[in-house]
Design a protein around this nucleic acid. Structure first.
Lengths: 212, 212
DNA sequence: ATAATTACATAGTGATCGCTATGTAATAGT
DNA sequence: ACTATTACATAGCGATCACTATGTAATTAT
């Protein structure tokens, strides 16, 4: 029940580390090695903070991961806004997948997708952590579905189009690209995959990378 | 360097458990909970075999996993044969992805894909296990690429078609469906995703599940 | 100055990790 | 029957796990 943005205390010794920077380092460690397979010892090394300070600042390992996931998995409001501004659902999804392709192969972060890989599997003790990742994916899926429904109502997509199928397909490609990135695929390969998959999305194509 | 199919010893007390059955139980445990996040204690419970017997029969945890992966990730020769027999690369890939959709949601096994999720991430100590999974995926990818090249040479696909892009797209969808399955998607949803994604594959379509 | 408060570093807690030493049971060869 | 061989069950190895008790340093309030 502790506030994420805790009110600054009025007395006492000040924090000797940057909480946000430490959280980001923790997130990168989880991204690289997964939730359960990143130890507290790994985290103290990555964050430059001793174990008691981690527990004082973030609660426990689970809360630390969940806060990192919420903070860096992407703000649903931002995604919703991008989807609302896009001319079509197809365009919005292409940009989303392209962004994923770049993120998964970027130099600033580990390969692949934090959301896809950090809690892909695990013990029963970490069930709620996996459920949190599932929930993040459900939010992304719901945003896609709503945007597709808008296009159907606007006549931009055929009346019989199934929003859930298209959203699931986009989500599968996106999460699957994380595996490719971890296997060593480069940015161009992932962008080509993104475009090839979007050929299966009804509506005009802005380009086709599989031939020519 | 121990033989997988060890020659039957001529003397000594006989094994009190079915080695193949125990291996399968271990594989299912890894599938459910991941390589590093399945403990030896979990394995003894799942396999019904004590720890010393596991080590005597399989070596160590890593060898047990690798043997399970080799045995159950699918024989490359079988996949190669199925791809060779299929009328087109497109047809072969559709059947492969449909098979994945059924496998990932089947009742006989945990949700999702052993190959995709059991070693998605992990500590440095398990790097070679993740590399083994990567290698299995590379074999599947290579089989797809070769089959696509055959279709290009036969004129079934446009000359400029890029085999790697199509193969990567199919692999991404397949591995991504594992995430969907773990998130609760049912078999029909995954089959629809498979078909929707294959709409992006050049060549005649045998059906389209996204509308109608 | 002194008290109150908060964070620090050190050093550990019990539990579980992967793995194995040890002695005994069960088989085959002689 | 006896030896050799292999597998068994029990028990426990050192290492690491997530986590914390304890005492001290650094700050604000009075």
């Amino acid at each position: 029940m502790k506030e994420p943005n805790a009110p600054r205390r009025k007395t006492g010794r000040p924090l000797s580390f940057d909480r946000d920077a430490a959280l980001e380092k923790a997130m990168l460690a989880f991204w690289e090695s997964g939730y359960e397979t990143t130890s507290i010892s790994d985290l103290t090394a990555a964050m430059g903070v001793t174990a008691p300070s981690i527990y004082a600042a973030f609660g426990d390992k689970k809360q630390l991961f969940l806060e990192a996931l919420r903070r860096y998995a992407g703000d649903p409001a931002d995604l919703e806004e991008a989807f609302a501004k896009a001319p079509t659902a197809r365009d919005a999804v292409i940009r989303m997948i392209e962004g994923a392709a770049r993120l998964y192969t970027g130099e600033a972060t580990p390969k692949g997708c934090l959301l896809a890989s950090a809690a892909a599997t695990g013990s029963k003790a970490a069930t709620d952590v996996r459920n949190a990742a599932t929930q993040e994916r459900r939010v992304i899926r719901a945003i896609m579905i709503r945007r597709i429904e808008i296009d159907i109502e606007a006549g931009l997509l055929a009346p019989g189009t199934k929003p859930m199928v298209l959203a699931d397909m986009a989500l599968a490609v996106t999460q699957g690209m994380s595996v490719l990135a971890r296997d060593g695929a480069d940015q161009n390969a992932l962008l080509a995959v993104a475009h090839a998959a979007m050929n299966g999305w009804p509506g005009p194509s802005a380009g086709d990378a599989t031939d020519g």
